[in-house]
Design a protein around this nucleic acid. Structure first.
Lengths: 235, 235
DNA sequence: CACGTTTTGCTACTTAGGTAGCATTTTAAA
DNA sequence: TTTAAAATGCTACCTAAGTAGCAAAACGTG
C-alpha cells in the first residue's frame, strides 16, 4: 500500500477494532495492509463484473454496500446483505465455494481495502487463528440469512415491511426514526417484493397512523402499532 | 464413549473421511470420540427442545435429518436444511451465535454422535486447525441458504418445485429417478408452500408428461420438459 | 383381517400480491 | 434556469397461491 501515513493509521485502527482482526499481531496486520490497495467507491458505484470479486477480497472500512441478486426473467432485484464497517466480501470466493452470482453497489461513498484472493489466502495461512473469527463472522451472517428466508417464506409483506422498519429504527434516540434513506424500490428489494407493493403498504401504514413519510425518509410515529404488525394477529 | 470396538472403528472411519475432520491427528480424533456419546434416533424422532441443541453438538454418522422452522401463526413448516452423513449441528450454538429457533426431525433411522458444547469448544481450542474446515463447511451451507432465498423470493412455485425435483434426481443412473420418498407436505416445506399447492402443481406436471406419480414416489419421465420449467419462459 | 392414520386428489372460494400505466413531485445535472 | 431522471402516489386489473373441506386410496399395526 502506497499512501499517506494518516490514511494508513486510519486503516490500521479500523481493522484492529474489527472482530475479524482484533487478535492479529501488529506485524501481521501491517503485512495485511501492505498487500492491500485502498479504493474509494463513490455512491452508486456498481460491481457488476462477478469475476472481480472472484479474484479480489475486500474489507469495507467506511460506507455502505448492498449485495444483491438480479433475476432477469422478471427484472427484479433481491438484496441479500447490507454491508458496513468491517464487513468483508466475498467469503465465498475466499473459500473457493461454488459460484454465487451476486452484484455489489455502494449506497454511500465507500472506502474499501482490496486484496488479491491468492494473497489473502496466503496471509490467512500465515495467520491460521483468523479462521476462528472468520467462522464466527460467517455464522452470524448465516443467522441473518436464515431469519431472512423464514421471513420471506412464511410472512406476508406488511409483516416483513414492519419488521424491516422496526429493525432499522434508531431505538436509542427519540423513539421515531428513519431508515437509511432508501427508495421504495430499495425497500422492496430488501424484503423480496416490488416498489409498487411497498408503496401500497406504506400508504396503509400511514393511514393507520404508524408512520409519516417524506422523500426517502420514513419516520415511525407509533412504535406500538408497528410492533403489533410484527407479532401478527391483526386486530 | 463406551461401546464395542467395531462401532468405535465405524465412527472413526466415518469421521476421518469427512471434510471436517480429515486432517485431524489420530490422537485428537480418538479424544473426540472419547467425549462423544453415540445415539440412535429412529425415524420420526423429533428434537423439539431447543435447549438440547443449544448445549449439545451433534455429528451425523448415518441417516437423514431435517432442520425446520415452525410458524405457529399459520401452522406452517419450513425446512431449512436436510442433513446427511458428516453433517454437524448446530454450528450456531457452537459459535454462541444468537438463538435461532429450529427443530430437528429424523427422516430415517439415524446415528449421531453427541458432544457437550462446552467440551466441543475445548476440543476445538486444542485443534485450532478445524476452524478452517468448519469455515469452509459453513460457507457451503450458507451458499445453499443463499440460493434458497433467491428461489423463494423471486421464483414461482412451479419453478421451485421443478428445481427441487431436478436437484434430487439421480442423474447418474437411468435418467428418471425419485426424490427421497417424502410426502407432499414435506415437499411443500422444502420450497416454502403448502401441501395443497404442491399437489396441484404435481398434477399439472403429470398432465404435461413431465413425471409419473406413485405413493411417496415421483418419477421424472421427461427431463427436458423439467429443465424448461426451471429456465422459465413458459412456451 | 379390521381398524385408525396418513397420504393423496380434487373442488370451490378468497385474497394478497404482482403488473401496467400514468400523473405529480422532487432532485440532480446540463 | 431548463431539462432530464428518479421517486412517489394512485388506479385498475389479473393471476398465483393460500384455504377449507371432503372423499378415496394406501398404509401399518394390533
Amino acid at each position: 500500500m502506497n499512501i499517506g501515513l494518516e490514511k494508513y493509521r486510519h486503516y490500521y485502527e479500523t481493522l484492529i477494532e474489527s472482530e475479524l482482526f482484533s487478535h492479529v499481531t501488529h506485524n501481521s496486520l501491517n503485512h495485511l495492509l501492505e498487500i492491500s490497495t485502498a479504493q474509494n467507491w463513490p455512491k452508486k458505484t456498481c460491481i457488476l463484473d462477478t469475476s472481480h470479486t472472484l479474484y479480489t477480497f475486500h474489507i469495507l472500512i467506511t460506507g455502505k454496500i448492498k449485495v444483491y441478486h438480479f433475476d432477469p426473467s422478471n427484472d427484479r432485484l433481491l438484496t441479500l446483505f447490507l454491508l458496513q464497517d468491517n464487513d468483508v466480501f466475498d467469503i465465498f470466493s475466499l473459500m473457493g465455494c461454488g459460484t454465487h452470482k451476486v452484484y455489489y453497489e455502494a449506497l454511500e461513498d465507500t472506502e474499501v481495502l482490496c486484496i488479491p484472493v491468492s494473497q489473502m489466502k496466503e496471509w490467512m495461512k500465515d495467520n491460521p487463528l483468523v479462521h476462528k473469527s472468520f467462522l464466527s463472522y460467517t455464522v452470524q451472517k448465516m443467522n441473518i440469512l436464515e431469519r431472512y428466508i423464514i421471513n420471506v417464506a412464511l410472512e406476508d409483506i406488511p409483516t416483513r415491511l414492519a419488521r424491516l422498519l422496526y429493525n432499522n429504527m434508531d431505538k436509542s434516540s427519540s423513539h421515531y426514526q428513519s431508515i437509511c434513506g432508501l427508495s421504495h424500490s430499495e425497500l422492496g428489494a430488501l424484503i423480496g417484493t416490488t416498489r409498487a407493493v411497498v408503496n401500497r403498504h406504506i400508504q396503509n401504514f400511514k393511514e393507520e397512523g404508524i408512520l409519516e413519510v417524506s422523500r426517502k425518509q420514513i419516520t415511525v410515529t407509533n412504535v406500538e402499532l408497528l410492533e403489533e404488525k410484527i407479532s401478527g394477529k391483526k386486530v
